[in-house]
Design a protein around this nucleic acid. Sequence first.
DNA 1: CGCATACGCGCC
DNA 2: AAACGGCGCGTTTGCG
Length: 483
Amino acid sequence: MTKTASAKSSKKEATYLQTLEFKEAQAMLFLIDSDKTDPSLEDILMYTNTKDISNAHKALFSELSRNETLLDLYENVDKPLIPIVEKMEEVGIKIDVPYFFSLSKKYHEDLAILEKDIWKYAGREFLITSPKQLGEVLYDELRLGEKIKKTAGGARSTNADMLDSLKAEHPIIEKVLEYREIQKLLSTYIDPLPKLIDFESRIHTHFLHTGAATGRFASRDPNLQNIPIKTEAGAAIRKGFVAKDGYVLLSCDYSQIELRCAAILSGDERLLETFKKGEDSHASVASRVFNVPLDEVSKDQRRIAKVLNFGILYGMGVNALKDTLGSDRKSAQEFYDTYKKTFPTLVSYLEEVKMQAKRNGYTETLFGRQRQLKMMRSPLPFIRAQGERMAVNAPIQGTNADIMRIALIDITQALEEKKLTKHAIPLLQIHDEFIFEVAKGYEEQAKDTIVSVMEAVLKKHKKEADLIPILVSSEIGSTWGDL
DNA sequence: CGCATACGCGCC
DNA sequence: AAACGGCGCGTTTGCG
């Protein structure tokens, strides 16, 4: 059997010769204890106090069977998902290798120029990739920055936020930021990815179905869930992910899914209403918080509402709000208070989640997936606060993750029923979206099938939660960058 | 030399 | 002071 499966599938020697039995055991253990992310064989044997995977599997199934909800999740969601995800890994996604090479050449040249510029400004050569050395140059030698935030380890921070605030003080800053961006793209994506291709120029990630404590997948070796998109230089990388000849790429993503989950879980009427009406949710929230008509919401008001919306999902405090908005403490506090006053049911829901987490030691998603949060009972206030933030986020992120899992199963079934299995093939899952490879001529049929299945997940599996429309937007293109 | 850690940063 | 949830991964640095 897979004796060879390395202990913690350690970075270097990860062997992925994992049996179905092992993966099922992982899935069961993860449903029982969300902290057992990507459990190793040893973890599983240890937990079940058994000597082989077969007995461990039996033991886990027997324990899982004592909880109807978790057993249901296992039988109908996590277990059937295993072969589906395995198939996605096997298929992989094609990349345009010559294109990656040309990007590499260009960016390495850019990098060399930036390096020279930076050394010139610094008055000496140093390792720009070393935060320690960069800190010495900026803060000791060039004497930039008055009040420098410290890192967790006590060093003067040189992160992008810090550098941004120093931009006006010295031209070296902008160059360093550029250098960092290009260096990141080269070393993490552009240069490593082409080394990973198979005979068809396809690369194969490994999805960890027990990868994140909330129920999300993780993607590893390589991680294809963090391919750049934000900056122009980064987005260029997505153009290197392509459909094979005769096919196109199709992306289908849930829009505002986490905020919709928050609306459903909380039952907050005002939040639900913005989705019922199909409004731009950030603008709509802005209109309510700032008490202005929807069509008079300013750009800045919308921006603030967006930060508030996201902040709520993450358990953000006033301090973080202030930093994110770049505003003063007083107005941050006002925004925060007004938001809470505007969505009282949402706030009381979040309080309820924290209390439940403290009482039970775990949170639950809409579908009953648990996240363990024993830390809620810690004597240390900081740990408890951290637990509260996790507690607030876990049901929201986790419900989204459940919906994605169920959607993938339903999509697979629908494609089989419509005889589209060979013409529309799922390649990637990226938390709120799927990427498919679709045969030319089948674009519309595949898109319609997938979108309607995705939009129907809640009303099909959770009728009582069918409160607002769940919308999916889709794009078709010959490269990922076109989506 | 390999390994763990700190730091930083890519994505949702 | 401490920073808003969930991940994976690159480079540097110090250690055994």
